[in-house]
Computed example of a mutant assay.
Amino acid sequence: MYTSADHTFAICAYGESPYLEELIHSLKEQTLSTTLLLATSTPNDLIRGLCEKYDIRMYVNDGPGGIAGDWNFAVSCCDTPLVTIAHQDDIYKPAYAEEMLTRINSSILPLIYFTNYSELRDGREVNDNRLLSVKRRLLYSLGKLENAGKRWAKRRALELGCAICCPSVTLCLPNLELPVFEAGFGSNLDWQAWERISRKEGDFLYNTNVLMLHRIHEDSETSHLIRDNRREAEDLAMLKKFWPAPIAELINLAYKRGQKSNG
């Protein structure tokens, strides 16, 4: 059985995010206290100051950069078997850690745990829009506990786009191959990772409760990728892992329209 001592929130901080302290507050206010650390490849006064203020261990990545490098470095800094990569702009609801441990301990072979989520736009929680509705439909089968370990259900959540919200994910490292993320993709390295993991025996544990808020704003990395069209090429490459090329291209046209709600 995993306990609170077995989990770490690994904050990935980059640059000078005006939202970083709000994230830290949400992690400090969890109903179940677990380990908290911060990893960065851009140490600065803001990050150092917040780490000192909240007594958070800071680790500096001097190795491979990029999103994959930063995320893998954050995971490597953790001494616990369960790791949640907390993105600097997002917010976690107080029950996230407590409900995560309950669900993971219900599984014989957990791979990843993740939750439903809302968007945070201009300081306001948005719980329902077209993109969220589509993702929740894709996750419908995994919402049933008996389907958590079924390969078809795990891949259904990914075959039309990545319905799994990356910052809502807790990794069960003893059951995964390291490093978790591969370099090469800018926005879809999480989709790539979940696709690879979905082939393994084990459970994708989906909590249908909204337990985190994913912030959408102009300066997010995803928004930048959408604007310079890198996202479209990455989406097509991922869709081809599930579909023949002509079908993947048709799906990608429809999927591209859904991205407009993120920019």
Rank of each mutant, 00 (worst) to 15 (best):
S4Q: 07
A5P: 01
A10D: 02
E16R: 14
Y19L: 07
E21G: 13
E29H: 13
L32Q: 08
T35C: 03
L36A: 00
L38S: 07
N44K: 04
I47A: 14
C51E: 10
E52S: 14
K53G: 05
D55Y: 01
D55A: 11
I56Y: 11
R57A: 14
M58I: 15
N61A: 01
N61T: 04
G63P: 03
G63N: 14
P64K: 13
P64T: 11
I67T: 02
G69A: 08
D70H: 15
W71F: 07
W71I: 11
A74T: 10
A74G: 09
V75W: 00
S76R: 06
P81I: 01
H87R: 01
D89I: 08
I91Q: 15
A97K: 03
E99D: 15
L101R: 06
T102V: 12
N105A: 05
S106M: 08
I108K: 12
I108A: 06
L109T: 04
P110A: 02
I112G: 03
N116P: 11
N116E: 09
L120I: 12
L120W: 02
D122T: 00
D122M: 02
V126C: 11
N127R: 15
K135G: 00
K135V: 02
R136M: 15
L145G: 04
G149C: 12
R151F: 04
R151L: 10
L158Y: 11
L160G: 02
G161I: 01
C162K: 00
A163N: 06
C166S: 10
T170D: 08
T170C: 13
T170N: 11
L171I: 08
L173M: 01
P174K: 06
N175P: 02
E177H: 07
E177A: 15
P179Q: 12
F181G: 10
F181Q: 10
G184D: 01
F185N: 03
G186F: 11
S187K: 12
S187Y: 07
N188G: 04
N188W: 03
L189R: 05
L189P: 02
I197H: 09
K200Q: 09
D203L: 09
L205S: 00
N209P: 05
V210K: 09
L213N: 14
H214V: 01
H214K: 08
H214M: 04
H214Q: 09
R215G: 09
H217Q: 07
D219T: 14
D219W: 05
E221T: 14
R227G: 03
R227N: 09
D228C: 10
D228S: 01
N229K: 13
R231T: 14
A233L: 10
K240M: 13
F242E: 04
F242P: 06
W243V: 02
A248P: 07
E249C: 06
I251S: 07
L253C: 03
Y255P: 00
K256R: 13
K256I: 05
G258Y: 10
N262R: 13
N262T: 05
